[in-house]
Amino acid sequence: MAVIENQVPIQLTVSDLSIRFGGIHALNAVSLAVREGEIYSIIGPNGAGKTTLFNCISGIYLAQEGSIQFNGLDITGMKPHRIAQMGIARAFQNIELFRGMTVLDNLMSARGHAMRYGLFSAAVFIGKCLQEEVRCRDEVEEIIEFLDLQNLRKSPVGSLSYGLQKRVELGRALAMRPKLLLVDEPVSGMNLEETEDMARYMLDINEEMNITIILVEHEMGVVMDLSDRVTVLNFGTKIAEGSPQEISKDPQVISAYLGETQQLSS
């Protein structure tokens, strides 16, 4: 785990973000600051607004109030593909792979914006187009190797097991060469071995590739072991922030997760 000092620059700032769906406050004035190179976890009970926060950061939802800044640039209201191209990648909670493509093509599709060639070049597939395709293939192969997907390269993603699909989902996000990676429940529904693999990948991504990770996860073991800092959301409101140790002792967090203890009067 990287040691995070206070002077490490802030990469992502979310300030006073609020979003309502009808009468429901999905997010209520949520603020947080993620430093460069840390693993930052967001936890909370179901319906706390964790995925909604991710959707706001990646531009799929437009928040009604508040703003989001990435590397000092205001990205509030930007189109999702622009935000993605700036370096915020996303691995989805429910597998959102492109089912009609192979593992390799799924990863290559996320690299599309890095290829600089036009329609006519693509139609003849020589020169610039071929060069760029080969270059990006090379880059994508690094990720395939990193995630041990070599023998599945040309398999259609639909034929893979759930755990492998989750890994491809992660690979597709990595293929974008992001600066910040949003990972939504990477180990949900996985067995112990797959969970350990995934946790190892997270650490490697963070340390070797120097990618900041924001993690949403219910599996407390993973959150406590991986995170540098944790934020707890409950009903769209931030109730605590701090190191895993601090969070696990926070009375508000305990009550949100386990419910209030009530004195029974006799």
Binding site: I60, P80, H81, A84, G112, R172, M176
Partner: peptide
């Protein structure tokens, strides 16, 4: 939606 999040306009 995933396509958009992968930088595809």
């Amino acid at each position: 939606i995933a396509a958009e999040a992968m930088g595809i306009s």
